[in-house]
Design a protein around this nucleic acid. Structure first.
Length: 482
RNA sequence: GGCGACGUGGCCAAGUGGCAAGGCAAAGCUCUGCAAAAGCUUGAUCACCAGUUCGAAUCUGGUCGUCGCCUCCA
């Protein structure tokens, strides 16, 4: 079965065929590290994390590069984002970079987002960027003006092919004020001359300055993935000018196609409006994690197709949490039942159902990474697993292990929405489990004696400290609430 | 103004030509000492109008509405 992807470049659904069989090269635009990441960032990086997990689960070898932007990303005012933050907090720019790079990775780790294979920093690749700019100048695609270098969009007939913008259409709406030294208003900076107060600066053939925002991605993608690579990802909000400019720079400099498949993720919104730093309508990932488990947040974001926007609200998260719990409860029940399951083949007929679910799961993801469809498959499976386990029929160890493995291979390894699970190895956790079991045993005795007051008291007091008991026909199981 | 996405049951959402997935919420039921969990049952003239077709949520044209980008954002 072939993976089909909607390629924004060309706006068609295409079969994904890597340049090199068995190998996938992938670049995703990373964050500018001047503040804590918010859940809008999480949506994008969770999407590509799951895509990488899926590609790897099918046996592909993925090389995943995602940059850290720590220089060159300017505000409207011309101020560098990093420098402004540094000035506000009286810190050195690279302190800011370290602080928020750590914050970013901490948040991603907490969400179960795997680290990229390479996380190159823009400031660590100044020579590569200068070299690419020199190539563009020597080929006539860029020109120097007043100590800065600009890309001459008029020289690139393909400019606009990703976002479908044509120069003449844009001309009328462009403000004169942004023209400056540029030949055309649409020309964008490859290198900017540093004013005296601009302390993030490097030597270059054009004097002291700093790189433009777009060139870092072109230079670093080339360095780690080559002139042409398979997948370029990012948020849809960067399609223009950033992604468009990346293509222009790279293809003009390298005389080769840049990314072969463009996958852009829809924005996370709040009350229908895009979550963004500038609007102030953001929730940091750390704050969201205070209220919701990582699996809940991941499931919420993946309950909508990656290319669509998803509207954030506590009500929406709560609804996702309920749906997530149903799956998580079933997985936990399987694991708990497994502990005392007989080593028989009872219930192995369910394997056929598992294979069908696994196939349906992959079919959904092969269809332009349709995660809502894949989640629906898991919901269907969960209903049947619950029916099986509650039917009273004997289910042996082999069948339970097969169910567990199916959840791990789908909800766990690919979508990353399973709870961490009780790690039986940790000493204190083991002790806690034993203590809870002791209390459950006491309560079971009380229940046998029909001492409901005592049994309810034990249950209520455990609930008060976050341990929820559920009585089943074959015994009492427990879970930690929240 | 230009480019792009979208409008599916109370809410979220999949579905690109052949009887409309899934989740949340609500109601009833089953199981249970009670509770919890789980299961069963109950819901849609697919924004509107006009076309194409044997047949349209799905294709074409138009209307209305929402959002993104065009200027910093994943």
């Amino acid at each position: 079965m072939a993976l089909m992807l909607f390629n924004v470049l060309g706006r068609t659904i295409q079969e994904f065929v890597p340049l090199t069989p068995g190998q996938v090269t992938m670049y995703v635009c990373g964050p500018t590290v001047y503040d804590h990441p918010h859940i809008g960032h999480a949506k994008t990086y969770v999407a590509f994390d799951s895509l990488v997990r899926y590609l790897r689960s099918t046996g592909l070898n993925v090389l995943y590069v995602q940059n850290i932007t720590d220089v060159g990303h300017l505000l409207d005012s011309g101020e560098d984002r990093i420098l402004r933050k540094a000035a506000q907090t009286q810190a050195r720019p690279m302190q800011i970079v370290e602080t928020y790079t750590k914050s970013y990775f901490d948040a991603m780790d907490a969400l179960g987002v795997g680290r990229p294979d390479i996380s190159p920093r823009a400031s660590g690749h100044i020579p590569e960027q200068i070299k690419m700019i020199e190539t563009l100048v020597s080929k006539g695609f860029a020109y120097e003006a007043g100590g800065s270098v600009y890309f001459d969009v008029a020289k690139d007939p393909d400019y606009g092919k990703l976002s479908n913008r044509r120069l003449q259409e844009q001309e009328s709406g462009t403000r004169e004020a942004v023209r400056g030294d540029k030949r055309n208003p649409e020309d964008f900076a490859l290198w900017k001359k540093a004013e005296p107060e601009h302390i993030l600066r490097w030597d270059s053939p054009w004097g002291e300055g700093f790189p433009g925002w777009h060139i870092e991605c072109s230079a670093m993608a080339k360095k780690y993935l080559g002139d042409t690579f398979d997948i370029h990802g990012g948020g849809i909000d960067n399609i223009f000018p950033h992604n468009e400019s990346e293509i222009a720079q790279s293809e003009c400099a390298n005389d080769a196609d840049f990314a072969r498949y463009w996958l852009l993720v829809g924005s996370l919104t709040v009350d229908g409006i895009k979550m963004s730093k500038s609007l102030g309508n953001f929730t940091t990932i750390a704050d969201a994690l205070q209220r919701y488990q990582p699996g809940v947040i991941r499931m919420f974001m993946q309950s909508v197709h990656y290319s669509n926007p998803v509207d954030y609200s506590e009500g929406a998260l709560d609804a996702s949490a309920r749906g997530w719990e149903r799956i998580a409860n079933a997985v936990r029940l399987v694991q708990q039942t497994l502990r005392s399951a007989p080593a028989t083949d009872d219930g192995l007929h369910f394997s056929e159902r598992l294979a069908a679910a696994r196939a349906a799961f992959n079919t959904s993801l092969d269809d332009d990474f349709n995660t809502p469809g894949a989640i629906a498959v898991l919901q269907d499976l969960t209903r049947e697993v619950n029916s099986l386990l509650n039917s009273g029929a004997a289910v042996g160890k082999a069948a339970l292990e097969a169910i567990d493995a199916t959840y791990r291979g789908t909800a766990g390894d690919v979508l990353g929405i399973l709870p961490a699970g009780e790690t039986a190895g940790a000493g204190s956790a083991q002790r806690e489990a034993a203590l809870i079991q002791l209390l459950i045993d006491l309560r079971t005795q009380a229940r046998k004696a029909k001492n409901w007051a005592e049994s309810d008291r034990l249950r209520d007091e455990l609930a008060a400290i976050g341990v929820v008991l559920e009585d089943r026909a074959d015994g009492t199981v427990w879970k930690v609430n929240g």
